[in-house]
Simulated scan of single mutants.
Amino acid sequence: MRIICSFTALILVGLSFFAGAQVSDDARVLLYPKSSDDWRAAYPVDMLSRALALSGTNYQLRAGAEDVPKARNFLNLSTNHGVDVVWSMTSVERETEHLAIKIPLNRGLMGYRVALVRRAEPDILAGVSNLEQLKQFTAGQMYVWSDTKILTSQGLVVVPGSNYDTLFRMLVAGRFDFFPRSVTEVSQELALHAAMGISLDQHLLIRYPAAMYFFVNKQDTKLAADIERGLEMLLTSGEFMQRFDRYYGDVIRELHLESRTPIDLNNPYLPEDTPLCRRELWWADLCPVKAPKFLYDQSELE
């Protein structure tokens, strides 16, 4: 609980800074998606703010006026309506329709998933050691999430939900067996919903290659270049990793990923030009030269 409290305090300080900053006359105001989950937005907003401060262009960040679903944010981004930058997991479709800054903000850990389960069945996934065994259980996901497509493409049964908060109630009610969540999100989610009778599975680590990027409108090439320039400077100086570890280091270490049984999945929606061989961008080595099997199609392994 101490880790969660420290994480929350860090979020509140960061977002209060962004909200209170003054706009100079020559600054371009950039709108990012408003979110009711301040803890989820704090890290990308912090990284975006720092990258833009290093870019050489004067920007001022502000939250958008409405908290809307991610699909609507992407629609608004493409029409230049109410949002200038969005962060989300990448896909071929999203990179076709929008301009992606191809530096994974959470170092690929969006594709590292541990499961929330019912407290009454904490060991429901004990003994699962491969994908075929995992297919005997049902997962819950939002119907619009990229992860839903990835999981179903691997033959997993996914029970779709239309509302994020409802998924926790569906889990407790037995509508599905487990709720896979990113290792950068699950500790905070567990703390917020533990009173419902939810606990953390201690057995599995589901892995697939994934990247969370900043996206801008396809025509906004100057903004894309400025964000990329700032992020590259953070990588070079080591500040990128320092900030990542400040937000997520203790939370990730607490999950003991090394002692979990890995279940590796393919991600058929990952663009071919994802910079997997820039090893400094990723938490684990995903370069195809030394890639784990889940980076290849099954036909290539035969």
Score class of each variant (00 low, 15 high):
L231C: 09
T261E: 13
I11K: 14
Q188P: 09
E189G: 05
F214M: 06
L61E: 01
M89A: 08
R175F: 09
R246F: 11
S259E: 14
F17C: 11
V157G: 11
I124A: 04
T236S: 10
M196N: 14
V158H: 07
N163L: 06
P122I: 02
H193A: 02
A224D: 02
Q133N: 09
V45D: 00
T148D: 12
D273H: 14
R94K: 12
S237V: 03
L151R: 01
R169F: 06
P292F: 03
T96N: 14
F168R: 10
R279V: 09
E93L: 09
K290F: 15
P122D: 05
W282Y: 06
N106G: 01
V23T: 15
R279Y: 11
L99G: 04
T184C: 02
A191N: 11
V83I: 12
S16D: 09
Y164W: 10
V117F: 04
Q133K: 12
L15S: 05
A173C: 02
M1E: 12
A126K: 11
L30D: 00
D285W: 08
N73I: 03
L167A: 00
F17D: 06
R260E: 08
L270C: 02
D250C: 10
G56R: 02
L156C: 08
A194Q: 11
L10T: 03
S91W: 01
N163H: 13
S16L: 06
M142P: 09
Y248M: 00
L31E: 01
F215G: 03
A291K: 03
K70G: 11
N106P: 01
T166Q: 14
F214K: 02
S55L: 05
Q141P: 04
Q133R: 13
L105T: 02
K149N: 15
I11S: 12
S299G: 07
R175Q: 08
I103R: 04
T8G: 11
L52T: 03
R2P: 15
M196Q: 15
R119D: 11
F179I: 00
D25G: 05
V172K: 14
L131M: 01
K34V: 08
R278H: 08
M142L: 14
I150S: 06
L301A: 00
C5I: 15
K293P: 09
G197Q: 03
F244L: 07
T261V: 14
V128S: 04
Q219G: 11
S129E: 12
R119G: 12
I252K: 00
R40K: 12
L255R: 08
L235M: 13
G64W: 05
S299D: 10
Q298F: 15
A284M: 08
V251L: 15
L301Y: 03
L134N: 04
V68E: 04
L12F: 08
V186H: 10
Q202E: 15
G230Y: 07
S182L: 01
M241F: 15
R246V: 01
A63E: 13
G238M: 09
Y248D: 01
F7I: 08
K149I: 10
D245Q: 15
Y32S: 01
P44M: 09
S36E: 10
L54T: 04
V92H: 05
S49K: 14
L10N: 04
